[in-house]
Design a protein around this nucleic acid. Structure first.
Ligand SMILES: [Mn+2]
Ligand SMILES: [Mn+2]
Ligand SMILES: [Mn+2]
Ligand SMILES: [Mn+2]
Lengths: 216, 216
DNA sequence: TAATAAATTTAGACTTATCTAAATTTATTA
DNA sequence: TAATAAATTTAGATAAGTCTAAATTTATTA
């Protein structure tokens, strides 16, 4: 149906044009580890296929068709990540690259059976919502720890940064999805955050606080 | 490491050059649904990479390195087929195309965990042996029903033809892996075979008998 | 608002994997 | 063994996806 390259572009455009934004050529080049000129070529092709709305120099977003395809790829990505963690016992920082390949396995019958096999999970190992077979999912409304007030108690529900180093850092400190944390102090000088978790004190930098998402 | 096309060629060469045979350009073109000239191009590339022994006009077989890669792809193919049938409840005639894609997922850690998850199965849904993580497997020594004598009792252990139509035909008649069959008669005129299975009489043509493999 | 900088597109080239048609080599057969 | 047929390779094109360098458009700033 669509090539691997096309699918990766659609997914990248989806992620960059959330909340009505428009994705730029340079943003796509950065995200896809390629050059702006290559992006322009592909944008023309995707526009010809009516998968994106493209105005030269003005950026892109997805058409309804393009969005449907993108969400299906994201569904596959997150279901395979869930499988790798829950069934094959990989850690949450080990699965992204594998899922990046597996999301392109074409069969929808396969992914629907996999979904059923795992009991229709709602969230992937990083807290991101898994679209159902109709592409529906509730994008849960989270905020970074850096937006939480002192004395509030919240639950870790996701991450903004999905890089291996960040995930490994969080795991080392026990900061995993589902954990309850209470913010006890915010250092005025550097905005680092002191919190309590499992009766232990943990200190995280402003950068970490910005990328760790918690319940509203 | 190797491209998808290269992997498919290595696998095809492996299958065509079993028991010391040599694969020809035309055989490969037929197997891979491509043209002889395309095959020649690829053979040069694989020879440059020292994955095959190629003498122009004389055909090819795999080097030790090439064989290792081919067996690893076959391991992945068969493990994914087993997964699809045993865990996701697909039928044996539905899984080949999917496995044809999944065999190219690169991670060996993934396939080793999958192997463990399923309890290290020895045979795939079509009775073909699954190489272990070191590439080792015993190619079991089967014969077609057409080579069985009247009054012998044997067990169905595999198929020579893997096409959907053939597998569906077998399933319709209950002729599945593991079933015990007793050959009661061989019709002299057309070599069709009469056999008993589950106390029922089944008649199969010579062609079916040639492609249905049973224990020695 | 004119000059400069940044972003984007165009032009031309390269790689991989394919194809058709023509040339060459090997095998078959009269 | 010479002619013919079959198999294989070579030559030359094509499409997808990428790249660098140059040209163009848009945004910024003096
Ligand atoms: Mn991908
Ligand atoms: Mn994820
Ligand atoms: Mn394949
Ligand atoms: Mn099989």
């Amino acid at each position: 149906m669509n090539t691997l390259a096309e699918e990766n572009y659609l997914k990248a455009i989806y992620h960059l044009s959330l909340n009505g934004a428009i994705a730029s050529t340079n943003q796509l080049a950065a995200q896809l580890n390629t050059k702006a000129s290559s992006v322009t070529d592909m944008l023309k092709k995707l526009a010809d296929k009516e998968l994106i709305n493209y105005t030269p120099y003005q950026g892109v977003n997805l058409t309804a068709t393009g969005e449907k395809i993108a969400i299906n790829i994201i569904r596959k990505h997150r279901l395979w990540e869930y499988f790798l963690v829950e069934k094959l016992n990989f850690k949450w920082d080990e699965v992204h690259e594998m899922a990046e390949e597996m999301e392109h396995i074409s069969s929808n019958a396969l992914i629907d059976r996999l979904d059923k096999f795992m009991g229709y999970p709602k969230y992937d190992p990083h807290g991101d919502p898994i679209p159902d077979c109709n592409g529906l999912f509730k994008a849960h409304n989270l905020r970074p720890v850096s937006a939480v007030d002192v004395n509030e108690s919240v639950i870790i529900c996701g991450v903004r940064d999905h890089s291996t180093v960040f995930l490994q850092y969080l795991e080392k400190h026990g900061l995993m999805i589902g954990k309850n944390i209470a913010i006890t102090d915010i250092i005025e000088f550097d905005h680092s955050v002191i919190l309590m978790m499992d009766n232990k004190k943990v200190q995280i930098s402003r950068e970490v606080a910005n990328n760790l998402l918690v319940s509203i």
